[in-house]
Amino acid sequence: MTQLTLELTKLRTDITEMWNLVASQLYKSLYSLKTFDKDLSREVVSNEKRVNSMELNIDRDCENIFALFNPVAIDLRFVLAILKINNNLERIGDIAEGISKFIIIEKEPFDPPLLQKTNFLTMFEAAIQIVEDALTSFNKEDTKLARSIFKQDEMLDEINAEANQIISDYIRANPDKTEQALNVLSIIRRLERVGDQTKNIAEEIIFYLEAKVLKHK
């Protein structure tokens, strides 16, 4: 096994570890929201430092591989894809942290009818699922699964598009819960961005495996 192969294998292991951490950050955010467990939210906020540290390490490793091993062809595409996936994962990590901060400042548990009307929990679970599907498609080198992420992202977009009206109606009916409703709307916006980031990741997986550029198409 060449040194480059060893370096690429390590990169794959490291990005998988970061991916799992980011997915778990999202999952913990959802769980703490459902159970109103602020300690768990604080744990997510604290763990964000680990995500950032992993991002820096992976960036540095990619830079070293470019400088020392001059990767070409599929190896080059792999390292380029990892650089971008790394960046997208870090942003998803930021989103999980942002959601947790909303939970921490919330005074009372989220109103179940509000969550139900906005399809909020469905959206949250779908956001976690597409991050996990992206990881599976990466590790199994399954571009069909990667392409299915585009469809899942559309579902998140639809829920987000409908949220304005639903939240507006809810606020009119429950003016005392305005602040919480606006926080839910903010979280929905962030979950929609998880979809966008994961779509970018899926594009990178397809670029790495098939050398096809799907960005902006």
């Binding site: 062809a73 080059l76 595409r77």
Partner: peptide, 11 residues
């Protein structure tokens, strides 16, 4: 050739 060669042997 150096980003996406057509042949496995080249890659």
């Amino acid at each position: 050739i150096f980003t996406n060669p057509s042949e496995d042997a080249t890659q």
